[in-house]
Design a protein around this nucleic acid. Structure first.
Lengths: 344, 344
DNA sequence: CTGAAAGCGCTAACAT
DNA sequence: ATGTTAGCGCTTTCAG
């Protein structure tokens, strides 16, 4: 396989010039560039990225650590991150963390081996006590979509509390009062679960209502459909009657709707349902799911832009490092058929 | 950041010995190994993978080229591939090809730059005419899940034709005769679409029936739910009556079920529906979807095992390269509620 | 079982 | 606008 030196020899230039051409260095005579390009073509030469990384210290690869891709939210998020990365000419190494603390700690170690330049990390098992491991990692890190761990790390998050409050408010506005919450987790670590539950509680309390423990559906095995159905069943078996459901994500909501319909309940007439995430499924469930769009695309774009900026900072000598960023994406309540129209 | 030389100095050995310890070379005195390990620990040393790759020519990273992760089938497949790779101590660089020929050709070029050792590739846009670009790539390639491109390349595929035939047979067995096919593609390139359509046709023809063009629902914009709903609508608007649906994947099936139910049709009483892929959604759609499990896990495992074996072959000197493998995974028809029970 | 020397292919730094 | 020199951190090869 041809090396840069081979190309240089054939083009009658030095290796450095070939390198310059390939790196987009602007000050090159047009004729020289063409000779080099021709030689590259004739030899079928391809740059050896590994050598470039070793020498330059930058790989052009970023890591993306997410729990699992089979969950539509993360699959769709990964696509957005991959697309944003491509726009920046970056490649992405995906580290599935499997919702485990060990998996997440392991993912944080990878960049130190220098194969990836920085990490976009969506934590799901670490908790506030782990905040210190996220600081001074020695490489740029952008945290995604959950709670705020540390003021010293870049975060791109969503309005979890406000979203859940908006969802609950909608149900209250249409007159529902026995509103179940599907997807509660016992783990104290559970970032978005805790925040979304907080939004639910705030909405109730703002109307002088309080949380009825019997309306809480637990899903400690993960926010999958199956668990949404199970949690819904448990609530229905426990209290008998429910007229609204706030699910902590769309998969849970769809599972819950399944269970409701199996029991002959009509949505939204008997029970109105709101989800969270606006995954593609939500649009085509039966009935179509009212949900919160947390601004996934914005989150992915901002995260990659930010990481890229941090990578560039490292190269630029002398530039002072900018202070940590906290970006909160906009959210939208998307009303579909699983809730009745609000009457004004 | 500490280097191997630093560790060697501290442990009072040569760099090579450190390297040996890290590579699991067996013939090392236990006391030496311990001194090295201690030094590594004390210095917080981490191997620079890039330098290792440059020297050894092997990166331990494999590429996975798939259309997009937001489609549950590919998200779930990616998880299986990632898990299998981890068992082999391999990392995975994902190349989204976006269902385009250009994206797929681009993905094939990446390994040549030496950052990844080999590629697991699920083509969706290349066609038989492109078979030659898949041969003699200069790195190991395993093709996934579609048609057979070339007898000179390793393939891990599924029983597309048989699966679609089984799905159609089920509908015929329960007395359905106006069976729509949802998800047809005009592109001649469409591997699994063509094969699954063939299975549908074979099942019909085996009973002396023929394909009614008006029952074909097109989804050239991709096998998403939205297009399943649209294709179903087009068929219903065109022919009015249908009593069965074979969808070319589960997302299309779920979209089609949505459209049917919006129009007041009951599933499976008025229309029975079968999908293909057995994604997690299928279990929790309303009604739960009867579908074909193509053996996704087996496919991922066999593909990574095979790739790994090919990578090892390259190292082993003199061993003759084994001939190309064609592995076809087992499939299963999973009967749920979107089809009536078969009466014996 | 361990060490010394060489060099993988490229680019940073400097020179011109 | 292009060339020279040096070396990134590791593993291969060969010697002991």
């Amino acid at each position: 396989m041809a090396t840069m030196a081979d190309v240089a020899r054939r083009a009658g230039v030095s290796a450095k010039t070939v390198s310059n051409v390939l790196s987009g260095y602007p000050y090159i005579r047009e004729s020289t560039r063409e000779r080099v390009l021709t030689a590259i073509d004739e030899l079928g030469y391809e740059l050896n990225v590994t050598a470039r990384i070793l020498r330059s210290g930058r790989s052009g690869v970023i890591g993306l650590a997410v729990p699992e891709l089979g969950q539509p939210y993360f699959g769709e998020l990964a696509d957005e991150v991959l697309a944003a990365a491509r726009r920046h000419d970056l490649q992405v190494l995906i580290e599935p963390t499997g919702f485990t603390r060990d998996g997440e700690l392991e993912a944080l170690r990878e960049p130190r081996r220098r194969l990836v330049d920085g990490l976009v990390f969506s934590p799901a098992a670490l908790d506030q006590g782990d905040a210190h491991v996220l600081e001074n990692l020695g490489y740029p890190l952008v945290l995604l979509g959950e709670q705020i761990f540390s003021s010293r790390v870049d975060h791109v998050t969503m309005h979890n509390v406000e979203g859940a409050r908006a969802a609950t408010d909608l149900l209250l506005d249409v007159g529902r009062r026995r509103i179940a919450l599907v997807g509660m987790l016992h783990a104290p670590t559970a970032g978005s679960a805790r925040l979304r539950f907080q939004g639910y509680r705030e909405a109730l309390e703002a109307r002088g209502l309080s949380v009825d423990e019997r309306l809480l559906g637990w899903a400690d095995d993960g926010w999958h459909r199956a668990n949404g159905a199970r949690a819904m069943a448990a609530v229905l078996d426990g209290v008998g009657q429910v007229d609204g459901v706030v699910a902590l994500n769309d998969a849970l909501a769809i599972g819950a709707m399944y269970e409701l319909q199996v029991r002959g309940l009509s949505i939204p007439r008997d029970v109105a349902v709101v989800g969270f995430d606006d995954i593609e499924d939500a649009r085509y469930s039966v009935p179509a799911l009212t949900t919160i769009d947390p601004g996934r695309r914005e989150i992915a774009e901002v995260a990659v832009d930010l990481l890229r900026r941090r990578l560039d900072e490292r190269t630029g000598p002398g530039e002072p490092t900018r202070p940590p960023v906290l970006h909160v994406a906009d959210l939208r309540l998307i009303e579909r058929e699983s809730t009745p129209p609000r009457v004004p």
